[in-house]
Amino acid sequence: MSASYLKNVASLVFVQEECVGCGMCYEVCPHGVFVLLEGKARIALPDNCMECGACAVNCPVGAIAVQAGVGCLTAIVNSLLRGRKANGR
């Protein structure tokens, strides 16, 4: 069962130079985005990322950044409307 969503949208950023190879990102990701290769993490399936933020929160060296958020449609509509209002001011 493939659970892949839109391509090339996820805001996941990983700086491999900072990686200490602890494997936490690999462990906490519910969609297998990361793999461990030669003692370092690597993004294998970027389009599987659902931006839950677990990897970034649990990276002890802050090598991962992702714009995590709640996926509820109403929350997103509200934030888009608020954003538009804020821009209008």
């Binding site: 839109l6 949208v9 931006e51 714009q67 996926g71 449609l73 109403t74 997103i76």
Partner: peptide, 24 residues
């Protein structure tokens, strides 16, 4: 159906925002 993204276990907020902008 688009509302069901909120229940799904694999949709990213960035993706939902993108589809919403076009579809809504």
């Amino acid at each position: 159906a688009m509302n069901f993204t909120g229940c799904s276990t694999f949709t990213s907020p960035s993706g939902v925002r993108k589809e919403l902008r076009v579809a809504l």
